[in-house]
Write a protein that binds this DNA or RNA. Structure first.
Lengths: 258, 258
DNA sequence: AAATTACCGTTGCATGTGCAACAGAACAGC
DNA sequence: GCTGTTCTGTTGCACATGCAACGGTAATTT
């Protein structure tokens, strides 16, 4: 099973859906439930739990299952969010509204991804808007129930996992800071593309951004990004067409990214 | 008692030491222990615990008390870190080494500050070097003992608190990202100074950075920063001399910071 | 198939800012 | 006192990049 968690970017755009339609007859639903448990087990939040413990825990915590269509807003920035969500199928993206109102892409996540966890139960308002990129199935768990210990070993394991999950997100954000700290646009582009190639495991890959989105992500102007990519292409460093990239000179790119 | 936690910047440079020398006769030491407990109670990590619970928990977890002289390295970047530290007195600072080797200030903390918590227990190596700005007293708790539940209510409370603590640090980092995303140097300076004034609670304050450090923090050139500060001073927006600042036109600064 | 929209590359221009170099002030040590 | 070091402000210059505008191509809709 293809599980992606905490992936700040994710170049895999085609997700193999285990279910195209969440509303199914009861017999299929049981089978679906089984699939969900297996997926949840491989999640950073629920790793290390047996299926029995997990099922019991979910019931005690009042976990609910929701389906959303593409484009639906799951979490509205500025309004309080009381649930942790785990993606069962589909993709979601989190964006921030910049002070000037333009959307700033933060992260995208596929099945197994956990969102809404970095609120610390402090009844804080979410700084990001979470929307469904594709039709989604999501499991929602009230944050209070998640944090409030019931004394079970499983629940304590989940708390530990939660610490891990949030720490991982911290490090992802820290890596983004590293990107933003690079001085030249060329360095940013090189660092970003190298990280994407690393994630994809090959030198040819697609990124989950349009040019305009990537420009916002790297905090630069869209035309400047196009210009720089054109230059790098002419210099033989890479090939690119729209969202597709092929890295040609890894060593040079590594040097450029400092 | 003056408690500072999770302060990414902190303009208070003069810390009133409760103890100038940690090595004292037994009678004083007990009194010191009492002070420590009170301070720890007001910490984000140990809030909500009674002194009895806290004392028992610390003993069970194998917490140790260490003193460091100014300049000593508490955590070396790149080497694994197995302990969470809570500052009892003094100040510490965390810096990163940029790819080019220059130090990049990350955070400073005073009494009550918690560090080494964002490692997720995954035996990760610390990305930052933590050093003592002043002579320090620190309480160290093995991360494994902290995460591994013993079934006590106090321990579960600590786990919850740990989630909160890490979440808070995530948001601090997110705010730094916001700073870095601002397009012009003037906007960065305005946003930073406004946040410092907000923290200090007054328009006249000192920042914990030299010009060169602030330039690194805002990701700009030192001379460019001096130039911009000079311009803003001539325009009547603020006054500055070395690390001291006085904001003169709050409205204008707010507009500039977008 | 036509029309509408979104996406992308290109280019000219203005300028903010990195870079290097220098000098004076503050500070520490002797 | 003197000396060396660190911190800071200043300035000239080059250039990377933001900005605006335009046209072309791909994608989507009717």
């Amino acid at each position: 099973m293809h599980v992606q968690q905490n992936s700040e970017f994710d170049s895999c755009l085609s997700i193999p859906f285990s279910r195209s339609c969440p509303r199914q007859p009861a017999r299929s639903l049981n089978r679906t439930m089984q699939n969900d448990l297996t997926l949840l087990q491989s999640t950073s939040l629920f790793s290390g739990l047996s299926q029995e413990d997990l099922a019991g825990l979910l019931a005690r915590m009042g976990a609910v299952h929701r389906s959303y269509n593409r484009g639906v807003v799951l979490v509205q920035a500025g309004s309080p969010n009381h649930s942790v969500g785990i993606i069962l199928s589909g993709r979601i993206e989190a964006v921030r509204l910049a002070p000037d109102g333009s959307p700033l892409p933060i992260t995208q996540m596929g099945p197994g991804g956990v969102f809404g966890d970095v609120l610390g139960g402090s009844s804080l308002c979410s700084p990001v808007t979470v929307t469904a990129c594709t039709p989604c199935d999501v499991m929602l768990i009230p944050y209070q129930r998640l944090l409030c210990p019931d004394g079970s070993a499983a629940q304590q394991q989940v708390l530990q996992n939660l610490v891990r999950t949030i720490s991982d997100k911290y490090f992802l954000l820290a890596r983004r800071v590293d990107l933003l700290l690079l001085r030249t646009l060329r360095a940013k582009v090189s660092a970003y593309l190298l990280s994407e190639a690393d994630r994809a495991g090959q030198l040819t890959f697609r990124i989950p951004f349009t040019r305009a989105q990537l420009a916002r992500y790297l905090n630069c102007d869209r035309s400047a990004l196009s210009r720089e990519l054109g230059r790098m292409q002419r210099e033989g460093l890479l090939d690119t067409y729209r969202s597709s990239f092929k890295l040609r000179d890894l060593d040079a790119l590594r040097k450029l990214s400092q």
